[in-house]
Design a binder for these strands. Structure first.
Length: 601
RNA sequence: GGAGCUGUAGUGUAGGGGUUUAACAUGCCGGCCUGUCACGCCGGAGAUCACGGGUUCAAAUCCCGUCAGCUCCGCCA
């Protein structure tokens, strides 16, 4: 192994082009591949800018040649040499640097490397746990570096955009207080206050509102948020938001700002040539649910839900009529061209729908001679014609129906819609379809707790005209809330906030927080509202999700340098781990696993 | 808390009660090779078949359990 001393890197490997021919360069990077022809050695050298071929000719570099012979994959090298045009016929069109090569005059082995558990290249076929255990190697792969670079550029352009719009970047504490409502908190014990705990922020919601009280007027922060809930492909226990808040604004002001910020980010990171122009389409919550069965619909394709409740009400098929009569719905979806699905495949669809609590799937097949189904006997010819028309059924189509409570109908058909679109191949992969969902209900009824809870969060303002209904008809109150959806993924959400103490108290009352609890947990906010709080509102973008979609990844883990597994573990470092008795003693904490002992990793 | 899929040399897979001394590819090691770029050719090493029980004369293979990873439901204002 040799020292780097005295050598200065002159170029990135990936930047060399024909223009550089004749130049003497010093490159530093990793050995991608070595091709030893006995009398001639090629070493592909890689750094974060790309790959270039270096050549070792024994006639020109005698003692260096034996060093080159000893090079293995992922050795760290400094190569000095001259950029030359490749001999006629040996150019490599698959390499950006393929017109040239570096004829080495000197090589220093800066470090050796064990054989990596997987190749450092794009599209590796390895189990994710291996990638996660050796994350530092996984991140060496060009596609991972591109994702992290894209994320960096997105953050930089968001900052630039918000700065230009008069926003100030202000930090808020990570050690903050636990409040009721919302996700489960990550807790941090306070050594100086035995028995008390900080909570890591689920978002800086209250603090940014208080910054509005402070007259900051425009705040933003690219900030880590923590929620101790179960993980998914697009959910990590810690994730990053572009969080912002502004005073003296209405819904349209925030939406305009976010649309332009998104376009700036897209332009700074563009990987495709889409025409992304505001305004983005808007859909009311109710329309989204009615047409797509989801409050974050993917509108890149059709396959919309069709209401059938009116016809179902007086048909002879009990499942349908009962659902329709008891306040439920009967809705369906036209699976274009799925009429040829086998019995077995339809059973699979039924099992799929069952996950969302649908008790079954009724179906009709459209044929040249009308509808075919065990259910046709329950419908007159006239009614069957109506079905055909309403579903725009053509020969070879499959109509699938769910009859149940509206929420189950929406969930099951909404999920089925996405599933079928994937099967049929209806989803355009290279499209970025943004969509606003607006007019959310302020509250939703929690069957389990038998009370209303905030759909967005308890600081969301009701629409002015709906305010009186907060006491009389809470379910009908609409919120000044808006979600940003991209390709069926919720990538952001925000609202105009409550800025009056009396309204905030009404809101707490509506969701069953007693005046005492409100004063105890949110007293500082209520007090603040009495000192001249401006009307204000804001937004938060799920930054990892946005970057995931912009970079075409299927999971948020692929755009987070060191993500956690589904059981919230870090396979590389071993976190979370056990701590010493002394540490626990300092914190006055005693562990009671109640028999739930998990082996130490 | 629940459902499904997965776990076999470093990596990716095959083998689904005894013809297995566990196969193939790639990687790795050694040799040969002056225009390769997934270099090529020859040779070699490398596996307590995730872990723990059980059934059996015999288990990588069948059964039960555990653990881990992924996807999803619940959960995530």
């Amino acid at each position: 192994m040799e020292s780097k001393q005295g050598l200065k890197r002159t170029h990135g490997c990936g930047v060399l082009r024909s223009d550089h021919i004749g130049q003497k360069v010093v490159l530093m990077g990793w050995a991608q591949r070595c091709r030893d022809h006995g009398g001639l050695i090629f070493i592909d050298l890689r750094d974060r800018t790309g790959i270039v071929q270096t050549v070792f000719d024994p006639a020109r570099v005698q003692e260096e040649f034996s060093k080159a012979e000893s090079v293995r994959s992922e050795y760290v090298l400094a190569v000095t040499g001259k950029v030359e045009k490749r001999p006629e016929g040996t150019e490599n069109p698959n390499l950006a640097t393929g017109q040239v090569e570096v004829l080495a005059t000197n090589i220093r082995i800066l470090n050796t490397a064990k054989t990596p558990p997987f190749y450092i290249e794009d599209g590796v076929d390895v189990e994710e746990n291996v990638r996660l255990k050796y994350r530092y190697l996984d991140l060496r792969r060009p596609e991972m570096q591109r994702a992290l670079e894209l994320k960096h550029k997105a953050a930089a352009s968001a900052r630039e955009f918000l700065n230009s719009r008069g926003f100030w970047e202000i930090e808020t504490p990570m050690l903050t207080l636990s409040t009721p409502e919302g996700a489960r908190d990550f807790l941090v014990p306070s050594r100086l206050n035995p028995g008390s705990f900080y909570a890591l922020p689920q978002s800086p919601q209250l603090l940014k509102q208080l910054l509005m009280v402070s007259g900051i007027e425009r705040y933003y922060q690219i900030v880590r948020c923590f929620r101790d809930e179960d993980l998914r492909a697009d959910r990590q226990p810690e994730f990053t938001q572009i969080d912002l808040e502004m005073s003296f604004v209405d819904i349209d002001d925030v939406i305009e700002l976010i649309e332009n910020m998104i376009v700036s980010i897209y332009n700074a990171t563009r990987t495709s040539n889409l025409d992304l122009k505001p305004p983005f389409p808007r859909l009311s919550y109710q329309e989204a649910i009615d047409r797509f069965g989801s409050d974050k619909p993917d509108i890149r394709f059709g396959l919309e839900l069709v209401d059938f409740t009116d016809l179902a009400a007086h048909c002879g098929f009990n499942v349908f009529s009962k659902a329709a009569e008891s306040g439920g719905q009967v809705k369906g979806i036209n699976a274009k061209g799925c009429g040829s699905l086998s019995r077995r495949e339809i059973e699979d669809l039924i099992a799929f729908a069952a996950v969302y609590k649908a008790k079954g799937l009724a179906y009709f097949t459209a044929t040249g001679q009308g509808l075919k189904s065990p259910l046709t006997k329950f419908f007159t010819e006239e009614e069957q014609k109506t079905i055909t028309e309403r579903f725009k059924a053509e020969e070879g189509d499959l109509l699938l129906f769910v009859a149940d409570r509206p929420s189950i109908v929406a969930d099951a058909l909404g999920a089925l819609r996405l599933h079928l679109a994937g099967l049929i191949g209806l989803i355009p992969q290279d499209k970025l379809q943004f969509l606003w969902v607006v007019d959310f209900p302020l509250l939703e009824y929690d069957e389990g707790e038998r009370r209303f809870s905030a759909m967005h969060h308890p600081f969301t303002s009701p629409r002015d005209e709906d305010l009186p209904m907060l006491k009389t008809d809470p379910a009908s109150v609409r919120a000044k809330a808006y979600d940003l959806v991209l390709n069926g993924v919720e990538v952001g959400g925000g609202s105009i906030r409550i800025h009056r103490r009396d309204v905030q108290e009404q809101m707490f009352a509506a969701i069953g927080i007693s005046p005492e609890e409100a004063r105890q947990k949110f007293g500082f906010l209520l007090d603040a509202f009495e000192y001249g709080t401006p009307p204000h509102g804001g937004f938060a973008i799920g930054f990892d999700r946005l970057v995931m979609l912009l970079s075409g990844k299927k999971t948020i883990r692929d755009v987070i340098a060191f993500p956690k597994t589904q059981s919230a573990a870090d396979l590389m470092s071993g976190a979370p781990n056990k701590v010493s008795a002394g540490q626990l003693r300092d914190l006055h904490i005693r562990i009671d696993l109640g028999g739930k002992l998990k082996e130490n990793r």
